[in-house]
Design a protein around this nucleic acid. Structure first.
Lengths: 397, 397
DNA sequence: GGTCGTTGCTGAAAGGTTTCAAGAAGATTG
DNA sequence: CAATCTTCTTGAAACCTTTCAGCAACGACC
């Protein structure tokens, strides 16, 4: 956009206001004891003041199609045609209208458009945790497919909070979005079915579901868990921690189940898998789990840990390393998702990879089909995960 | 929600459909050659079919206030009162109306509401890169403040693409959202001023700006750059790479400028700082930069690298380590943002920490003030970053 | 028994766009 | 030149809610 201007602007801004007190934090990092310099902008006040005193005083100048029509000397309908079917209006008229729009600063009122036209050009992806790179990668796939279809994507973050999820679902339904993609906290929640019942398509992402109300796109988590644990078993581990929780999250229970399945198939006792329950799937919880694991006496401590996702694994890894455990010698670690940071970790992380972007893209495509194709048939698409072996299990061999 | 049901559901889903061909990827990970099992859901089709054949055939059953009013035997206005000023309607009437809503599956049409009432209960945060944990942390702060005020947040991702940024700005303005938070690609773009001119408040996040049209909340990037490089200088480095780009991104130029400032203050020549330009602020670009740096002959190679953000630093670190460079002995690395993964990296990363969540919260608060307080005065808030020293510069001392 | 205040409800107008049947102006044809 | 087509444009209705002035009923008060 303005490849050059940025630097100049940047230079002139901060220095004068700054008391040269740069906080310098030694290693055990302190709380972000940031200094806040606040500055009222003089120019601003003058301007705002002027704005508020403007005759009419309304916040928005509100030039509507009507005003545009008047300014261009045409009828309402013609303006609307310029907006929606430009090919139907003669070039000269169109030019007049467009220049009127320009000079009036016309901004189409989407609420009114949608009210009358009935359809929205927006789809939403309600994410389980926007801070988890796995979901932002899925979101990228969604955006890609949406863009191709000329739609826009709003991202919402339930943050693993059922209340917020419900609020967002209400909101999106009220907004009459064209469709909702969701990685739900609980795919069986009845709330999830009310939307499609009333006409808002919903596609479930990263959970398989076959209630006949939704399409779903998922990766086989049971298989993923099985593959992960089979790998650990083949490496000789006989006592493995499963780090994950809460159990309301299907991904967690599926992956655990897969792990148990692997034990069964290998003829190992079910209690070879030790549950280390976490409160959420975050790095911080992973650290907590590491604390607990490292605290166990060496002879009772599992020799490996399978984590329900990479955030947990990274936290676990970090904590264990800092407490002096060697990975993988003292504790082998397998993560899940193979997020980009897994490979860059203190010890590169063995992980179960999922086709993240493909997941999002496919989900969005199903949603688009559902909302535009009257012959749409619900589908359940399942992808297969694959194990990516790195140092955290196999060592530097 | 359904603490128990989840596991059962999970079990019954995937196994039957799966050909037990689990792809197993050896270390140099292959492309996610995932198998896609697709399944048409029989039950579904029946249902959908039924739905489509319903008399009227419309996608949405469309129960409006009118229908509710009729069903409850009251007037339109009363239904609206139940919705918006429940305390003004008698308990018995309210109960009647509410049960009518329930049984009709009434969903308020937000478009119509907004058209008439004029205001939206939504703010948006237009992010520079949703895949960067720094911005999702900022978003968390935004959500926190918004929730407190009873508003909802829509997240949009420009993905460092000016076209998408512009499209989203148009969209949000047309949606008449209550306000827009944005981390812009180019804060000087005139497009950024047209929104406030027409009544949509805009707060710039992570860039300082004083054009009198916006509030802005930022961290002093020049200072951050200076602090980072001062640290490296004190450690004895005299030839430092600055890894970052493109230069259209203000954060990059500011941080570089701070670095240069530190050199100046230390009386070192300006060419002590070697530019390693990247195409974006991503892990992948960081790896590329690592490739280039590691390729230099040891005597011409900088002894340290200051990266414009942690993603670059992590990529750089990963690549250098895998190419046999020791960090920090052969190359010391400083990142920027102190994202959660920085501490968990192969070599824990020295980084410049910013109060991310506070940034978002403050920005949202300013936005709320601007959109609700007629005496709002634009402000520019600047926070001070702090250096967090870890192994990637100081070694294991 | 009239007046006044409350409380709860009503009915119509308004908000900005899209849609569509129908009209006007020009171009083409027989 | 009349008749027929085309191509543009028009005006009014419709979308669904909120708002607000006003009305009815009722008790309290003097």
């Amino acid at each position: 956009m303005a490849p050059s201007g940025a630097a100049d602007r940047a230079r002139r801004t901060p220095d004068p206001a700054l008391p040269p007190k740069q906080t310098r934090t030694p290693n055990p990092p302190r709380t972000p004891n940031a200094v806040r310099d606040q500055e009222r902008l003089a120019k601003t006040n003058a301007r705002r003041q002027a704005r508020r005193l403007r005759p009419g005083g309304a916040t928005r100048s509100a030039a509507g199609v009507k005003d545009v029509a008047a300014a261009a000397g045409v009828s309402l309908g013609t303006v609307s045609n310029v907006l929606n079917r430009p090919e139907m209006v003669s070039p000269t008229t169109r030019a007049k209208v467009e220049s009127a729009m320009e000079s009036l600063g016309f901004v189409r009122n989407e609420s009114a458009r949608q009210l009358r036209a009935g359809s929205s050009r927006i789809i939403a992806y309600l994410m389980l945790d926007a801070g988890n790179p796995f979901f932002t990668d899925v979101a990228r796939g969604v955006e890609e497919a949406a863009q191709k279809a000329g739609l826009s994507v709003f991202l919402c973050n339930s943050n693993e909070d059922a209340g917020r999820e419900a609020d967002y679902l209400d909101l999106l339904e009220q907004q009459r979005v064209q469709g909702v993609l969701i990685t739900p906290i609980d795919p069986d929640s009845s709330r999830l079915s009310t939307l499609p019942d009333r006409g808002t398509p919903v596609v479930v992402v990263d959970r398989a579901i076959d209630d006949g109300e939704h399409c779903s796109v998922a990766v086989d988590d049971v298989l993923g868990g099985e593959v992960a644990l089979t790998h650990l078993i083949e490496l000789g581990h006989r006592r493995v921690a499963f780090v994950g929780g809460p159990n309301t999250i299907g991904q967690v229970t599926d992956r655990r189940e897969g792990a148990q399945e692997a034990l069964r198939k290998a003829g190992l006792p079910a209690d070879s898998l030790v549950d280390v329950l976490t409160g959420a799937l975050t790095v911080a919880e992973g650290r907590g789990a590491g604390q607990r694991l490292a605290g166990l006496p060496a002879d009772r401590r599992p020799t490996a840990a399978f984590c329900a996702n990479d955030l947990l694994a990274l936290g676990l890894l970090q904590q264990c390393v800092s407490l002096g455990l060697r990975v993988p010698e003292d504790l082998a670690i397998v993560g899940y998702d193979d997020i980009e940071f897994a490979a860059a970790a203190a010890v590169p992380l063995t992980s179960v990879r999922q086709p993240r972007q493909l997941l999002g893209r496919t989900a969005a495509e199903l949603l688009l089909d559902e909302s535009s194709n009257p012959d749409h048939e619900h589908q359940r698409v399942t992808f297969t995960p694959e194990l990516v072996v790195r140092t955290s299990t196999r060592g530097n061999a």
